[in-house]
């Protein structure tokens, strides 16, 4: 039953993907129709024929989108199509006619799935090339972003988890620190950016600081909540076994609160990954967020979309990691 549910859900997912790609393709695909033919009136055709231009040549040039005034000029040359081609084409003779660049292509400028596929393949096959400061493989750019997230996040965990323990275990610390947490927590992480840029100066460190500040809160509040709501029976077990505060914290409170703490860490890593993209758009230089902005400025929408897709996949991988961790520490009462 479960197997068949797996199968059915996979089928449905696939169907949604195919349908989505089809709609995307249908709305963005540019058909290879060539130039739009020109329809001549009977009078115009008569006038051209009167200038000794062949009926076949008239039909050919008209189908290539050459308008009457230009046809009239061609007729005026008194040359057959063969001779014009030998001379290098109509344009070589100084007559302006439309080519594939002279009119906007019909359809959308938005890249089609096929174009994205090509870019995506190029990225996957060569993710780590370096062709200049503004032209590096997305693997490298994601790496820059990931590194910033890991540094800022680890620092945040190192501060938030011990502090969360303190707040959770001591009502005094909770009451004293709660007002600050309540005020600082709702501030958008990017609002810290100017302060960071001014005080720290370095843009690299500033984006790490922004990651730090946005990761701290969910970990801090979840740790405090998890620690405070450890069942008093379990604490009593530790007390009747004469465990000291540190031993109690490590052997009883930590495993008891671990699922709540990991939930906080999972929320934090999600927020950190959201914020790093915005932060890199602001500070520029390197990173996947900067890439998105850079490709937008260069109007390479296809490459931009590949970058966006990679952001999503990376975020999913980070979340999966913490979901695994969560499962490892969870317990049923």
């Amino acid at each position: 039953m479960i197997r068949s549910l797996d199968l059915r859900s996979a089928m449905l997912s696939l169907l949604i993907l195919v349908a989505g790609l089809f709609i995307w393709h249908a709305t963005t695909h540019v058909p290879d129709t060539g130039p739009v033919g020109v329809v001549l009136s009977a009078d115009q055709e008569q006038a051209l024929l009167a200038k000794n231009m062949g009926a076949e040549d008239i039909a050919y040039y008209a189908s290539q989108g050459v308008e009457f005034p230009q046809l009239d000029q061609i007729a005026g040359l008194g040359l057959s199509r063969e001779m014009i081609d030998m001379a290098g084409g109509i344009r070589a003779l100084g007559i302006s006619v439309p080519d594939e660049n002279s009119a906007p292509a019909p359809g959308s400028l938005f890249p089609s799935p096929a174009q994205i596929g090509v870019e995506l393949w190029a990225t996957i096959t060569d993710p780590f090339y370096v062709a200049g400061t503004n032209d590096m493989g997305y693997g490298i750019q994601i790496g820059y972003s990931l590194l910033r997230v890991i540094i800022g996040y680890t620092l945040a965990a190192a501060v938030a988890i011990p502090l969360g323990f303190l707040i959770g275990m001591s009502p005094l610390a909770y009451r004293a620190l709660d007002p600050y947490i309540q005020v600082l927590k709702p501030i958008s992480p990017l609002a810290w950016m100017p302060i960071a840029l001014f005080t720290i100066g370095d843009s690299e460190l500033s984006s790490i600081f922004v990651i730090f500040i946005c990761s701290v809160w969910p970990m801090l509040t979840n740790t405090a909540f998890g620690v405070a709501s450890v069942r008093s029976d379990w604490i009593n077990v530790a007390r009747t076994h004469e465990l000291g505060s540190l031993k109690t914290a490590i052997t009883v409170i930590l495993p008891a609160a671990a699922p709540t703490i990991i939930t906080g860490m999972r929320i934090s890593i999600g927020i950190a990954w959201l914020v790093i993209v915005a932060a890199e758009m602001l500070v520029g230089g390197t990173g996947i967020g900067y890439v998105v902005w850079n490709e937008w400025n260069g109007l390479r929408l296809d490459r931009m979309i590949v970058a966006i897709l990679l952001i999503g996949v990376m975020g999913m991988l980070l979340d999966t990691l913490f979901a695994r961790l969560q499962r490892a520490v969870s317990y049923t009462e």
């Binding site: 029976d233 009593n236 077990v237 009747t240 495993p255 008891a256 520490v329 049923t332 009462e333």
Partner: peptide
């Protein structure tokens, strides 16, 4: 002084 609690008070992760 060992205690056996009414609700067992076993540590559920062990």
């Amino acid at each position: 002084r060992g205690v056996v609690f009414q609700n067992y008070s076993l540590l559920p992760w062990l």
